[in-house]
Design a protein around this nucleic acid. Sequence first.
DNA 1: GTGGTCTAGACCACG
DNA 2: GTGGTCTAGACCACC
Lengths: 131, 131, 131, 131
Amino acid sequence: MFIQLDLESTEPIYIQLQHQIIEGIATNKLKPGDPLPSVRSLAADIGINLHTVNKAYKQLKQDGFILIHRQKGVVINPEGVPKADEGYKKEIQSKLRPYIANAICRGISEKEFVKLCKDIYQDFNKEGEAT
Amino acid sequence: MFIQLDLESTEPIYIQLQHQIIEGIATNKLKPGDPLPSVRSLAADIGINLHTVNKAYKQLKQDGFILIHRQKGVVINPEGVPKADEGYKKEIQSKLRPYIANAICRGISEKEFVKLCKDIYQDFNKEGEAT
Amino acid sequence: MFIQLDLESTEPIYIQLQHQIIEGIATNKLKPGDPLPSVRSLAADIGINLHTVNKAYKQLKQDGFILIHRQKGVVINPEGVPKADEGYKKEIQSKLRPYIANAICRGISEKEFVKLCKDIYQDFNKEGEAT
Amino acid sequence: MFIQLDLESTEPIYIQLQHQIIEGIATNKLKPGDPLPSVRSLAADIGINLHTVNKAYKQLKQDGFILIHRQKGVVINPEGVPKADEGYKKEIQSKLRPYIANAICRGISEKEFVKLCKDIYQDFNKEGEAT
DNA sequence: GTGGTCTAGACCACG
DNA sequence: GTGGTCTAGACCACC
């Protein structure tokens, strides 16, 4: 697996794990239907507790990214991730607000900020193609 | 003051407080040199703990948004907020990454995402003019 | 057979299997004395583990729905299913309680709830006639 | 508190706990805005692990029965529980189906079954008034 | 003091 | 071997 955690970070481990897996899906490294390691093996792999992995998996399931079969294990949602609706967009905007306010204070223009975002998009695209 | 907190939110209060003040600066409601209420009076005003306000102020000071004088009280940094450097941009990008990854998974195109960001910028501009 | 399983469900497969067979009896698709496929063939048919079918059959036998003859195979209880006694009613009521409590909290009146139940009864009746 | 658990039951403890609290709301023993014991104190009270209580609370929160404040503790949702929608009714019907199928097999008529449900409703009403 | 997170280790249901 | 549940004990963020 390509999971890379920062155990020193204040960001909870299970959140980092979620992010990594979501990035994996975004870059197409993980495709619908792909299997994910079992809770135990992934925990052993990256040297954390199985409950921490479990928590990450459960929330990913809740958000529609993955399916958890009691026996067969875990797979990327074969139907694909639920598309964004208005509620989601509202939510992400409210999350973005503080970052943008901060950026404005620090003199980052709209154009610059958009550039930063586009860079990230490019990043994901590149990774996606490379694979 | 225009502070509006959501005590039900999982977002820590001192973080919300920071965000509100930063938004105030971003929209020009708070200008360089403007005074801010003392820890004590602000805490009393919005009915929260002294420590909470203190924590918010301390971090705002640390980030260069405000100055804290022992006697003169608290003011918005008269020099303006330190401009963004490369380090800051890197940092904000790393914060943005998970949101964008998530957005990609949910089928939000780069164009759409940029639109969402621009909307927020417009929002801040409008508020700024109105005041 | 008319067995229809949802392998994605959190509901254990052997439970689903039981339910399906019980529904078959309730709708008269399966009549007293009717033969049921052997453990082996049913498992092969619907592509699940022998043990799973076995567990379902064992519990159905235990509850008096079916008889298992070592040689003659499996049949729907020719005597019919044991009638409900007081103990059974108490038991089913205790199972129903949490659902009803939940329904009350969500503003479903007694009348509405009864309607929901009657709908299901109608459903079974219709299916029964159709066959 | 009025919590009564059966530690021998196969029903997970956190589920029993949820049921008990939901029943408390249904019988009006717990009213919107009422505080619930802290995770730790309730766990100590009924002699189970705090994580088990936590799990029950989290799911109750998820289902809209309670609110969890990081500091203030836990309260019954002051807005009341979200009302049942069509989806909920569909869901509860699919849960009810197996019980009704079983009841039919055991010779319980629609009328009798409805009676059983009404009894439970009466039960909750009585308890509600008594308090 | 509150809930949130993480670890660790045990037992069980399921297939 | 899989995930689900439960216990136990530790540290942290928050107020």
